[in-house]
Design a protein around this nucleic acid. Sequence first.
DNA 1: TCACATCTAAGTATTCCTACTCATATAAAA
DNA 2: TTTTATATGAGTAGGAATACTTAGATGTGA
Lengths: 217, 217
Amino acid sequence: MKNVTKLIIADDHPLFRKGLVDLISTIPQFSICGEADDGIQAIELIKKNVPDIAILDINMPGMNGFDVAKKVKSDQPSIDIIFLTMYNEEELFNKAIDLGVKGYILKECAVKDILDCIISVSEGKYYISPVISDYLVNRSSILKINETHKSAIDKLTPTEKQIMQQIAENKTSKEIADKYFISIRTVENHRMNICNKLSIHGSNALLKFALENKHLF
Amino acid sequence: MKNVTKLIIADDHPLFRKGLVDLISTIPQFSICGEADDGIQAIELIKKNVPDIAILDINMPGMNGFDVAKKVKSDQPSIDIIFLTMYNEEELFNKAIDLGVKGYILKECAVKDILDCIISVSEGKYYISPVISDYLVNRSSILKINETHKSAIDKLTPTEKQIMQQIAENKTSKEIADKYFISIRTVENHRMNICNKLSIHGSNALLKFALENKHLF
DNA sequence: TCACATCTAAGTATTCCTACTCATATAAAA
DNA sequence: TTTTATATGAGTAGGAATACTTAGATGTGA
């Protein structure tokens, strides 16, 4: 393991950047080998100074954090990347994970969390902000929609819930019928009754609902 | 805010429970008002001693953590619940969130994380283990499958990706055709080409794939 | 006993998706 | 220039889901 971890910070807000630099400077284990105002400057600095970790703001002029991360990952894959962002949106988070980003923290996080993140990543671990829990709890696909549907789901009979489980596993009506030794028409009737109870309409609506609420049945 | 936070711990592994008790005892802010071996005992203790927070193992004999949490949430909803579990599975995690559980940590977590969790919950915040990041990264729906499919997705042409986005939004071929002023047959051809490129077969397979990989297009 | 919910099953019709083949136009690449 | 990839469109076929109606069997609770 290295003695000193070299960091580069890219953020277009000077004040925030200064705060971060000061914070990191209190830890002797880390040294900051560059600061960037925007994405393009970040790329150049990373190429020139070859840090261990690059801390990137997602929202920057010129190239955004994603563009920078993509470029770095293809040119210098050994450099770890931390996203430091204001946006706690699931889409962005998932995209970041897919890009191979090692850390994801929100700017609203406590100072301690930000340091924890940098330390974890420097130790080769992943770190995702605990505050993400709030977005996990608040995001539509888990709670907002579910709260609405949960009561409706309770209206389903045991057999109907069983059918929903099978639908969520992408089984066709025929497969479900064969599995439980009942007529395919019975399964189709259950499907229709479920659709009515849940106020679901349109083609494949049930499959979509079942996939999204899989864990509730 | 209270001065002392009362905790109950339910876990069927005595050694682990002792470790946890010792750990928590080092913090004067917390006091342990009960320990349980199994779910039923946990319920009784919680009813009798009325803690602020209940720390529950998911895998317990008799009633499991979910059963206990459900009962507590309906009888004494003001009591916060923390799940402490060996299982880092998405299904369990989502179920826990839906139950209104405030903390979710894995037993493999660092001691510090476990303390952070209890402190956060005692302050009214949610806390989900940073190590969850590992499961987020490793779980099939984000990486294992995506890694396999990502290369395949790159083979899609821009138009095909556009079609996939629409499919992920649950649009029918007809709706997509109308939106882009092209023939429904063109859309259907794109669908088929996409199916071939991704080696997808069967009814609704494309919809399912699109929903699961929404964020990649 | 009567009412109600649930599970079972079928008839009919429509819409949508999948599968496979063929064809034309265009633009980029070899 | 010839090939290749891409986007466009159509013919034919079959499988599957949705929509709506009707109806018998069973069990539970009032």
